[in-house]
Nucleic acid binder design. Structure first.
Lengths: 196, 196
DNA sequence: ACCTGAACACCGTTCAAGT
DNA sequence: ACCTGAACACCGTTCAAGT
């Protein structure tokens, strides 16, 4: 006779790295990076904070690395059909949306050492350009420029949404709110238009 | 008879917001953002941590805002002679150097609300373009694109210096170390070349 | 006005112990 | 193997008190 495991003792879904990262991302998205603590994360998972260390031995460091990987590793589809300009435009739209949706992890993406995440994304951009017939050197430069622009623009947007009003008008002489979508597309045009 | 103030009691230079910010920046540059604590900052200033609150009533929040202002507010010289391309290239070089020299505050520049600092910088870029004969709309787009690129590229550089070696080669197929200076200049050419 | 000392409510992390 | 409980060395910040 086989025992039903769900009946006894602690019948809750066990912890896993994936569940931990997801719960952490949920906290960051909802309450901000500053409120992500091991204790609060434990609460959200209905577990003592110390249980997390069993799955992430490097502790909070490893947790933050996981968040970066989850958000920043989003390569372009090099096998997509169409002009490389359109493929990159579509990727950039998606990547920007990703960064804005998880704005709280942006400071981590910016400085945290996590080679694999961004390197893979960068390689996919080069591949799109290479397949599109752009020379190797120019492709490397363009991939770098594009990723830099998307990340930098997302950073400006995250900061900017707060000072659309009076502050921006006073300090910059700009008239009213910024249409960020249009701004981003226009800047994207500048970057892609500069690739030869 | 006038008393000599320097003789008595606590004859040390009194605290000031400027001294506090400078000491904080020194800690961040030397030991990283994570090691900037009010207590350590107090030690560096030879004062109890609580004394800082007398000069920065909003506490650490205000301290971090001050760091961002100190690093990110570096406008271009709109009255400089020469082609606008050269003026912006010179500004970009300087701004990049600034961000890299204080890489520890980069995550703060990226997300911390501090309208004045970036808005003033942005306005100066627009002014350079406007004086150079670029149309208002195109100037606004280009200023935004340029600042976004410089910040984003600096972020990639800060992260990248760690994975120049094997990690980058494996993940990206790139051959060896990246010449960041050349990369930056080339990307700058792409961005400026795209402005019409 | 400017700084100190003690205290409070938190942190991340370790370590031995439970099941 | 997986989780808990108590403990340690830190945090930022408040508040009353000193000069």
């Amino acid at each position: 006779m086989v025992r039903q495991p769900s009946i006894n003792a602690q019948n809750r879904t066990p912890l896993s790295t994936e569940r931990i990262i997801e719960a952490a991302l949920h906290i960051v998205d909802g309450q901000g990076l500053g409120r992500l603590t091991m204790r609060r994360l434990g609460d959200a998972l209905e577990v003592e904070a110390m249980a997390i260390y069993h799955h992430l031995p490097r502790g909070k460091e490893q947790l933050l690395d996981g968040l970066v990987a989850h958000v920043a590793a989003a390569p372009a589809d090099a096998s997509a059909p169409g002009r490389w300009q359109d493929v990159l435009r579509a990727w950039a739209d998606g990547y920007r949306g990703r960064l804005l949706a998880h704005a709280g992890v942006l400071p981590l993406v910016v400085t945290r050492r996590n080679p694999a995440a961004l390197a893979a994304t960068l390689a996919s951009l080069r591949e799109v350009l290479r397949r599109g017939g752009v020379a190797e050197d120019a492709a490397a430069v363009a991939a770098h420029t594009l990723l830099g622009y998307v990340i930098g623009h997302a950073a400006l947007e995250v900061r900017g949404t707060a000072d659309d009003g009076a502050a921006a008008r006073i300090a910059s002489g700009e008239d009213g709110a910024v249409d960020w979508d249009a701004r981003f597309r226009a800047g994207l045009g500048v970057v892609l238009g500069g690739v030869r």
